[in-house]
Amino acid sequence: MSKNKKYVMVYAIDRCVDCKACMVACKAQWEVPEDYFRTHIDEKYSPDKLAANRKYFLPSQCNHCDEAPCVSVCPTKASHKREDGIVYVDRDICIGCKYCIVSCPYDARFFNEEVGVAEKCTFCLPWIQEGHQPACVTTCLSNTRIFGDINDPNSEVSKVLAEAKKNKSKIWKLREDLGTEPNIYYVQS
């Protein structure tokens, strides 16, 4: 029995040093328009300011949600959820209405003025189909980013998540309260 692939990403956020190599690698790989990036790194502080005040570097990108708002609001079905879990924008059908951009709670999309379409992270499709890792993962110097098929128990993401669970690390996804079922796991030991 072969289950469908489901691509996810894990961020081991303790390792991120805010070098922004992921942002640059992604931009170089896909000719992302000037002024825009498909992935970002935010600088945030822990809320308990007095106790253990600490700065965190928090990467983010498209969460490839299972219940993606961008997919349900896209009038042309250009934004669609693929069987391998990737939320993909078909540039041949995208009419450029920008509705998906304002529907995304993660602000992961932007408008590509040159082509006239909505743009975002694709987990480096079609490059990953040739057996490569996404550009941000390949370039990440601290191995913060781990990519793979969560339905395969022997994949690196599955192993890292199992290990994190065993060590009782903090594992979460962004704004799960919104019901979007995101697929990027944040792990903090």
Binding site: S72, T76, K77, I95, C97
Partner: peptide
Amino acid sequence: LLIYLFANPTSAIT
């Protein structure tokens, strides 16, 4: 492409 504006019944734009 305008005809595709009718494609998705869950979209308010449709």
